[in-house]
Design a protein around this nucleic acid. Structure first.
Length: 211
DNA sequence: AAAACGATCTACT
DNA sequence: GTAGATCGTTTTG
């Protein structure tokens, strides 16, 4: 058996990722991040993302050309880009056609399954501090640089899927939030969700919502 | 070979 | 809300 979750959560196809990073970042909200590790499975609903554009984005790791670290950003869409920052890791999905170095950072998820495992990995009892923030969620999901370059469309180890039971945006809450410290990168989030890593009312932010 | 940098986190006020 | 730790990657000399 490839994965106990596969029948219920098939991975999103490459065509989903092979588009404008902003579009991908936006539509990633509400999807499920699935991680199968030897220790067990963890699942979480994506509530916050950040788009790193290939053009005009000084925060993009690839803004000054290819390096050993950012190599997978230049590859085809639908692969994981995992790197280390300080003591933690960050998980991105590569977007847009091969040769266009753009990606979407997964900033926060809402725990859906494997919560005990997350607690154990994080040594954290407060549920809001389990997966709020790129570094925290990677620790909770056991995502490390060994997953760098992994194909997210296969359905092994790590992938993203639709959440059939509770799609987002829903009819009751069709709006999503977007914010940025400067002009870029753009951060997308589900409004009023307690698992979003930064509140939309943080000072100095130009927040707005759209459908 | 050295220095600067940062897509963060935790602790504390 | 702010301060400081901390370390791999990249850039510079």
């Amino acid at each position: 058996m490839r994965s106990g979750f596969m029948p219920f959560t098939p991975p999103l196809p490459r065509t989903f990722y092979n588009r404008d990073a902003r579009r991908v970042a936006r539509e990633l909200l509400g999807k499920v991040l699935v991680r199968q590790s030897p220790e067990g499975a963890t699942l979480g609903r994506i509530v916050e993302t950040e788009a790193y554009l290939a053009q005009g984005d000084p925060a993009n790791h690839a803004c000054s050309g290819p390096t050993k670290r950012n190599a997978v950003m230049f590859g085809p869409a639908g692969h994981a880009y995992v790197y280390r920052l300080h003591r933690v890791c960050c998980l991105n999905v590569v977007t847009e056609p091969e040769g266009v170095p753009s990606a979407v950072l997964i900033r926060a998820v809402e725990p859906l399954g494997g919560i005990e495992l997350m607690r154990r990995r994080r040594g954290q009892k407060n549920p809001y501090l389990l997966t709020r923030g790129p570094g925290r969620l990677c620790q909770a999901f056991a995502v490390d640089p060994s997953l760098n370059g992994r194909d997210l469309t296969i359905g092994e180890e790590i992938w993203v899927a639709d959440l059939p039971s509770e799609p987002f945006p829903s009819a009751t809450s069709p709006r999503i939030g977007v914010t940025a410290a400067r002009d870029l990168p753009l951060r997308f989030f589900i409004p009023n969700n307690p698992f979003v890593s930064r509140p939309s009312n943080a000072p100095g932010r130009k927040d707005r919502t759209f459908t």
